[in-house]
């Protein structure tokens, strides 16, 4: 394996690559070529996107859309985290829970969250709650799966030692199973956070009235083409940022993980 040495100019290559990409974009947007399969006639240029972004940054609309999206993601994600971790711990640890809870979940799991949109619009009178439900469904399965795997991955010898040291059933659960599964759970939460944003944006495009996904779609229908790209970039930044936040919180909660010799 090649060893990556710390390089004083390590940022040069990535920065040049990013700059080249923006230049290519500028080139395509200004030349507006029609390439058969793909047509750049209406593609906004980087400059237009930057201006649109600057305008949005100064307008109260930004906080308004962001606030709605963040609240929906938070609500759906929090519900999915609670349900996914609780169900995952039970399914991973107890035979009766596996037997009763797993079959229906296995039937639902392959259905993409987006496919739930029509039904959830019917089920929930409030479109707000139906969008939260979609983000919930999207995050639930990654979190549930990671938790079950985490519980199953706990070393049986650790459980045996805890019992030899006098821990009873529930103490074993709290002292060994939960912390043993914690690293896997954090990974599941970070993945779930990503799918949360993916599902939310889709749901907002279909049934939303506010929110960053709705803003992106509205920009298309109102022919504010630069704003489409602004919306896309914002979604990317929010998704990346919230996943990074989950991982940072995970590191704080698990100080032993980074402990090296």
């Amino acid at each position: 394996m090649r060893v990556l040495r710390p390089n004083p100019v390590a940022w040069v290559l990535p920065a040049a690559s990013l700059l080249a990409s923006v230049l290519l974009w500028q080139l395509l947007a200004s030349a507006r070529p029609h390439l058969g399969l793909i047509d750049f006639a209406n593609a906004p240029s980087p400059r237009e996107v930057l201006d649109a972004g600057w305008t949005l940054l100064q307008s109260p609309k930004l906080l308004f859309h962001l606030g709605h999206s963040l609240w929906r993601v938070f609500a759906g994600f929090a519900a999915a985290a609670v349900a996914g971790i609780a169900l995952g711990l039970a399914i991973g640890r107890f035979g009766w829970a596996r037997g009763t809870l797993l079959p229906p979940l296995e039937v639902l799991r392959p259905i993409p969250a987006v496919a739930w949109i029509p039904l959830s619009v019917l089920l929930f009178p409030s479109s707000e709650v139906s969008m939260m439900f979609i983000t919930f469904i999207g995050a639930l399965f990654p979190i549930l799966l990671a938790t079950v795997h985490g519980v199953e991955g706990v070393d049986a010898r650790l459980v045996a030692s805890a019992r030899s040291l006098g821990a009873r059933r529930w103490r074993v659960f709290a002292e060994v199973i939960v912390p043993g599964a914690a690293p896997a759970i954090v990974t599941g939460l970070a993945i779930g956070m990503g799918t949360c944003w993916f599902c939310l944006v889709t749901a907002e495009m279909i049934s939303g009235q506010f929110g960053i996904g709705y803003y992106t779609w509205e920009s298309y229908t109102l022919q504010n083409y630069p704003n489409i790209v602004v919306g896309m970039l914002l979604i990317g930044v929010l998704g990346m940022g919230s996943s990074a936040l989950i991982r940072a919180l995970g590191r704080l909660a698990m100080p032993w993980q980074g402990a090296a010799r």
């Binding site: 650790l158 045996a160 043993g180 032993w256």
Partner: peptide, 20 residues
């Protein structure tokens, strides 16, 4: 009948809790 602190067991590889 079941494990007990009165009969302490030490494995070949340690079973210390990594999080403690």
């Amino acid at each position: 009948a079941g494990p007990s602190p009165e009969r302490g067991l030490v494995f070949q590889h340690h079973t210390l809790f990594p999080w403690r």
